[in-house]
Structure formats: structure tokens, C-alpha cells
Amino acid sequence: MVRILLVCSAGMSTSILIRAVEKEAVARGQQVSVRAVGTTELESAVGDADVVLVAPQVRHRFPQFAEIARAAGKPIALIEPKAYGPFGGPAILDQVAQLLSGS
């Protein structure tokens, strides 16, 4: 089971992404759990995640998030703008696989 944590401004828009990722995971036969949080909740939620993905609209805060993720020893990356939407499931799961194999 791969636990994915998505970060956006208020945790609202990424909740749309959750469904896209879960659907793709079912199609691929993978076990994932996806959680969306707002920027202020990252610090308390990062411990329960295997990988952190950051929404493109808060990319100006990425350095700050990267620091939190690094402190927790979790891989972190930015979501490609094009993958950020209801059809972004495949691209995001590919990105997760890449992040986990890289660490």
C-alpha cells in the first residue's frame, strides 16, 4: 500500500484529484491511499505518508514544503500542471512510482 499525500492551498482542489488517482490505481491493480491537505496541515500529516506531491498553484512555497518533507525523510515533488485535473491519474501514479524508486 502506497500512501500518497497531496498538498494544495486549502485541500479542496486536490480532493478532486484523489478520485482520479484512485480510479487509475484500481485500473492498474495497485493499492494506494490518497489524502489531500491544505498547506498548513502538511507538517502534521507528512508522518503518515510515503510520498508527498505538491499542487502547481502553490509551487512558490515548494522550498518550504521540501524542507518539511526532508525533515520527515519523505520524497516530495511538484505535480505537473497538465496532470492536475480530473484526467491526471495516470501521470501522477507514474510520478509516484518514479519518486519511490528514486529514494
Binding site: 479542496m12 482542489s13 478532486i16 499542487a55 498553484q57 497538465k82 492536475y84 485535473g85 480530473p86 484526467f87
Partner: peptide, 21 residues
């Protein structure tokens, strides 16, 4: 397709899928 998938979030004033999609 994108418009139909984004209609309900749009009514709830969530539009990142539109902005990036």
C-alpha cells in the same frame, strides 16, 4: 469532457482543474 467534469467543482467555486487542465 473537461467542462463536464469541472461543472460541479465549479459551482462550488473550485477551479484548479480548469486553470491547469
Amino acid at each position: 469532457k473537461l467542462g463536464r467534469a469541472s461543472l460541479l467543482p465549479g459551482i462550488a467555486n473550485i477551479n484548479e482543474p480548469i486553470i491547469f487542465g
